[in-house]
Design a binder for these strands. Structure first.
Lengths: 205, 205
DNA sequence: ATATTTGTTAACCATTTGGTTAAACCATAT
DNA sequence: ATATGGTTTAACCAAATGGTTAACAAATAT
């Protein structure tokens, strides 16, 4: 049995780099800190990844490949819009509990370097709205949901699900609650967000 | 007539620092770049603001003082929840067109240093949910709106309004549209977001 | 056993960066 | 005119930082 990813030096470096980069961002991270976190010499980082930029890109692509399928979940299965929303909202909020730094990290770095995301267009199940768009248009037409553009609905779903994880400290300060209450609030959102969206678009019979 | 803020050296520095810090963040910004943007010598930055940290804090507090009243708008006037939402959504999206970097900047920096926001608690009309909370509870009780906690509603309003400005490049890539279409999409949101929220919470007569 | 490749390290290097200093500049009061 | 105070600059400095090198260690092939 070959060594698992986490036992090889290269894997340890990637893991350490992930931790540091996702917490501090490209600009705020130091190669020495990554080396320390991986428990190895700084020169080894360059031996395996040549430069800070390349190490960063490896981490970013990994992160993006983790995020993308989550979004594709909502776009490319065959359930109704309503089911998709419930399913996605629940899954996404669960997923985010395991990767709390992911959205902050991705969004910050994509803002820092917007061209970066264009390189990813072709790879790794990059989210594509086409199918979702047809489905929304069809459901609007046959009266299952109220008129709304697929784009706006998609943005709303993303916003309601992702925003709280990006703005956590801000929300905590405004709503003025402790960690425990905040966690509960997030837990409640697993169902509340879906209800909120569906209430807005569902046509009552 | 005394010199306007923008003519004094101190004001020019603050303006330049705002531009650079808001675009690149604390970690990504260089004192030299700020000096260049202000058209002055780097030593002058230290003459007026002592250190990068202090210059940054001046910029951050300015930015926050611009953001905070926008949020207080929704929380502390006397109109109905529905009117508040319409009013706020329209105003906020207009406001953001003028300060496109503000939310990115504030959220990123608050994440980088969560304690930072606690120092702002006391000053500058820091958003307070108490009144809004009472109002939501009252409207829920007398049946004007469906049951929802003020906290969740507040988070949803923030998310739907702010998120698109934070995640712009990501959304552009996913929705696969050009700048012009994106701008139109954002313009549409001035009314669509309010409709979306109100449809979700309004009780039909 | 020994040569060769691969992995790892300590020491080093060039550049960048935040910050300082001492001298020059300039307006204003005397 | 000249002294005085704040303002501005060029030159400088020490520390930090990404990256390299040369030697050493440990597998792997011959």
């Amino acid at each position: 049995m070959s060594k698992s990813e986490k036992e090889t030096t290269e894997g340890q470096i990637l893991e350490a780099a992930k931790n540091v980069f996702q917490r501090k961002g490209m600009d705020g991270s130091r190669m020495q800190e990554i080396a320390d976190e991986a428990g190895i010499n700084k020169a080894l980082l360059h031996y395996y990844y040549r430069s800070k930029q390349m190490l960063f890109e490896a981490v970013f692509k990994n992160a993006f490949s983790l995020m993308a399928p989550q979004l594709n979940g909502i776009l490319n299965d065959d359930s109704t819009i309503e089911d998709k929303i419930r399913h996605f909202t629940h899954n996404y909020l669960t997923f985010m509990n395991k990767h709390p730094y992911l959205p902050k990290f991705i969004i910050h770095e994509v803002n820092r370097n917007p061209e970066f995301i264009l390189n990813l267009r072709n790879v790794t199940g990059f989210p594509n709205l086409d199918k979702f768009k047809k489905q929304v248009e069809s459901e609007v037409e046959n009266g299952t949901i109220k008129p709304i553009s697929a784009e706006q609905l998609f943005i709303n779903i993303m916003a309601l699900n992702i925003f709280p994880f990006i703005a956590t400290p801000l929300i905590k300060a405004f709503v003025n609650i402790d960690d425990k209450s905040f966690k509960q609030l997030m837990e409640d959102r697993k169902t509340e967000v879906a209800d909120f969206i569906i209430q807005s678009i569902k046509v009552k019979p």
